[in-house]
Design a protein around this nucleic acid. Sequence first.
DNA 1: CAAGAATTTTAATACTTCATGAAAAATTCG
DNA 2: CGAATTTTTCATGAAGTATTAAAATTCTTG
Lengths: 225, 225
Amino acid sequence: MNKVKILVVDDEEDLLDLISYNLKKAGYEVSTAINGKKGIELAKRQKPDLILLDIMMPEMNGIEVCEVLMRDEILKQIPVVFLTARGEEEIEVKTLDLGADDFLAKPISTTKLVSRIKAVLRRYKKSEEENPIVEAHGIKIDKIRYIVTVDNTEYTLPKKEFELLFYLASRKGKVLDRQTLLNEVWGNNIYVIDRTVDVHIRKIREKIGDEFIETVKGVGYRFKE
Amino acid sequence: MNKVKILVVDDEEDLLDLISYNLKKAGYEVSTAINGKKGIELAKRQKPDLILLDIMMPEMNGIEVCEVLMRDEILKQIPVVFLTARGEEEIEVKTLDLGADDFLAKPISTTKLVSRIKAVLRRYKKSEEENPIVEAHGIKIDKIRYIVTVDNTEYTLPKKEFELLFYLASRKGKVLDRQTLLNEVWGNNIYVIDRTVDVHIRKIREKIGDEFIETVKGVGYRFKE
DNA sequence: CAAGAATTTTAATACTTCATGAAAAATTCG
DNA sequence: CGAATTTTTCATGAAGTATTAAAATTCTTG
């Protein structure tokens, strides 16, 4: 449940701030670059989930940046959304084959910005997702229905408890420490003390019984194999 | 083994050739029209499975073409994907009302063109394959007549409410989050806050009773299995 | 078996989410 | 056009959830 990372590249600092602020408010992790070169560097280092790229920039424009990205086997996978000013001349529309995922004309409403970005991300949503139904020892954890079944009794756990259980059960036998669980289930950028995990474990056990999750003292928790 | 037919309408012959070439390569049967009027003629004669429509065209623009198509009982069923040049944001809003299925901003890579078209066709096909009558626990939802029957009492729900209910009921047991519901029931390109879903759910419950749709806190809604 | 360390449990508090009512905006239809 | 209906937004409070702190318990090890 890590936050989605977005890289914004624009030479106008004000706009960078504005966009950054709104994307953060919408729950994204944002990094910014003030020119194309820095943008490429950051992209390589961070591997963001989406790049928002201004076309008109001095030195290296957005299209050039995009061309560089496309040459990298990993970076080429990342969806790119272009920002363009209204009235900018067409840039060889017919021959360009850049792989833009969307275009947003400046100025753009923040609502629209966010929802367009959501739409693009949605299209890219990873298909390599975990199997949504985990079964073992008479327990069935169904992420499609958000229902846990133990010996034909159904339980509805609250979101965090369900996701914690699901995460553990998807990795049967593996001991996971608290920090890992926090990172993976809660998300990287959340500030929560690790005792919180204990309490959730306790609540899960309270509901479905304590034979499924084992404690490994000094290390973490493990779903019974 | 009929090929899927796509009609491309654009006034720029080069672009028409480029798109046509790539769609054919992707296994589609392609026909082209160089202006809106010819496009409509061809659509009537051929009944394509999808229409790719440039917005900016002389004489009759893409929006006008679409409006004509919408007046025809048969043609209105065909999904329309718009091609829009950068900076034509305003137009986009209008086309939403027309029931556009997607937007492609020029310039677009041919790979993306094809994959987006595939996505639209997939989505469209799915809805065709849905059984138009869903029954469960004394409720019958009939999409042919747009009537819901609960214990022999008939209800006529407004469009959005009906479609939301139908969508949920067609996926019994599956938890659907608000964003998915918005995308699937409202459409990809619409900007509506997700609390809207809540209100519609409430109206549905108000009318047919609240035993059918369950709330999964923090996740979404689910039709009782 | 006692001390220290780690976990479990309890309980209090802060935080989220959703249902609801009402009103504004958009759409439909006469 | 204008009234009726539908759709969307907004504000609020109640219910449910998550988090923290702290006390009780269990476990480990010398």
